[in-house]
Design a protein around this nucleic acid. Structure first.
Lengths: 255, 255
DNA sequence: CAAGCGTATACCGGATACGAAATACGTACA
DNA sequence: TGTACGTATTTCGTATCCGGTATACGCTTG
């Protein structure tokens, strides 16, 4: 059971034309606006407006809005349009809790599946991460951290669980981490614990390590989020803040 | 630049004209086709085709395809179109694992938050479920089961976690359960264990009960899924099932 | 002056039509 | 037989139009 997860993910067929859809560009753009706080909850987002912003037509813009609605960033008010969904620091904490649960599951499976070669690859990445941390190279640090987690997730060998994790981590701007003081050191020690669990093939120990790692990171980000919410808004006009009663059409899925 | 919404909306509730979008209809339709096995993995799904099927134009059809891509039912091959994503019985099991983790978290929080009134309401629903089971009333059974779980999820008080659960349960056709022999009885006993945990305010006991409940249900459904995969395809229309090899563009999100 | 009502406007949801680019497929040629 | 080319099909994006509805504004009335 060394290498290659059960899924047949034929990696990288060159396919040349790496042309991302315009709708994906628009999706990332609006998502960034929401996560950065430029678009606040309750704001109405119009297709033509964002089309003008990016110099595209309304068709891909509407597709982007639809995608963001599925992701939970926007809500659709039937004859009004798309409004930015509420997003609080507590929401961020909750999402990190979910991320921890899913990431923990993946880590546990990775530990169960890990072969010698996997461990070696992870350790190589880990050492590169340490080197980047020592040089204070934020970009490379972020890159290696991403690669480290990605490798673990792939080792778990479950397409759909990785997919769900991706839906959660859309709420987590990666570039944020590197700006947290003390984060590199904490990450190094956390990753060493993860490595220990994987090396010894101990799923539950690895799961616990991953959960702690994610929750810890999440608390830092959520605190920053709260701080930003407390900050005054750009102050265009004397806006009555319109804390409108959110329609919040929860469907509360069942089992 | 993006305009702010007209903040004149004077706090009047939108009355919810209850008009479902055409794109949502299309989304549900295609999702049903995929889950029922009529659309097999690798099949190319064209906007015009589904537009003709439902008597709608390509505009809402394309929005539906975009939504299904976010949900993971479809993959987008850049200049080719949308193809049905691979979906195996193991995928279903994995998704139930995720559902168990998230549902367990919600149940644990519900137990922590539960007040007397909440418990009373849950017990009322539970008794109605028992009554429906005794009458062999499948529709009402399904309805009460849904309401029971919904109530627990709402008690947890986390918008975003419920949202994530909804993304997972899109892969679980609710109407399936009631057709499983012996499921009503198993559900009643499982729910009683859940109630016990909530009544005593024991989060971890409740979490464990919910995890067991979901995993148990999932195994039944996944077995059915495997069975169907082994079966030959309906062979109704010509439709030569364009078995293009799915590229499976995993992005493997990180933390 | 305040409250109710009717009209005007804005905009969503959807339908088409059209064009450019790229891929797939069939055919002709060496 | 293998390769190159040309055509057909399709995706992706743009532009435009229309019906229906919710909101905003202004007028009338008590």
């Amino acid at each position: 059971m060394i290498r290659k997860s059960p899924q047949t993910m034929t990696s990288r067929s060159p396919r040349s034309s790496a042309r991302p859809q315009l709708s994906e560009k628009a999706t990332a753009h609006i998502r960034g606006l929401i996560m950065s706080g430029e678009l606040r909850p309750g704001t109405l987002v119009r297709p033509e407006t964002i089309g003008e912003d990016l110099g595209i037509s309304t068709t891909p813009a509407r597709e982007a809005l639809q995608a963001l609605r599925v992701e939970g960033f926007l809500e659709l008010v039937p004859r009004r349009g798309f409004v930015v969904a509420p997003l609080t620091g507590q929401d961020i904490r909750d999402l990190f809790q979910v991320q921890a649960l899913i990431g923990g599951e993946l880590a546990a499976r990775a530990a169960a599946n890990a072969g010698e070669q996997d461990v070696a690859e992870l350790e190589a990445l880990h050492h590169e991460l340490i080197a980047a941390a020592a040089r204070n190279d934020h970009d490379r640090l972020e890159e290696k951290n991403h690669a480290f987690h990605r490798e673990i997730n792939l080792m778990a060998g479950s397409r759909k669980i990785i997919w769900m994790l991706g839906l959660v981590t859309r709420y987590v701007p990666r570039q944020f981490y590197s700006s947290i003081p003390g984060w590199p050191q904490a990450t190094v020690t956390d990753h060493e614990e993860l490595l220990e669990g994987i090396r010894t093939g101990d799923p539950e120990k690895t799961r616990a390590a991953m959960v702690a790692h994610i929750i810890h990171s999440g608390e830092l980000l959520a605190a920053n989020f709260d701080e930003r919410l407390a900050a005054p808004l750009p102050a265009t006009d004397a806006e009555p803040a319109q804390e409108r009663s959110g329609p919040a059409a929860l469907d509360a899925a069942s089992a």
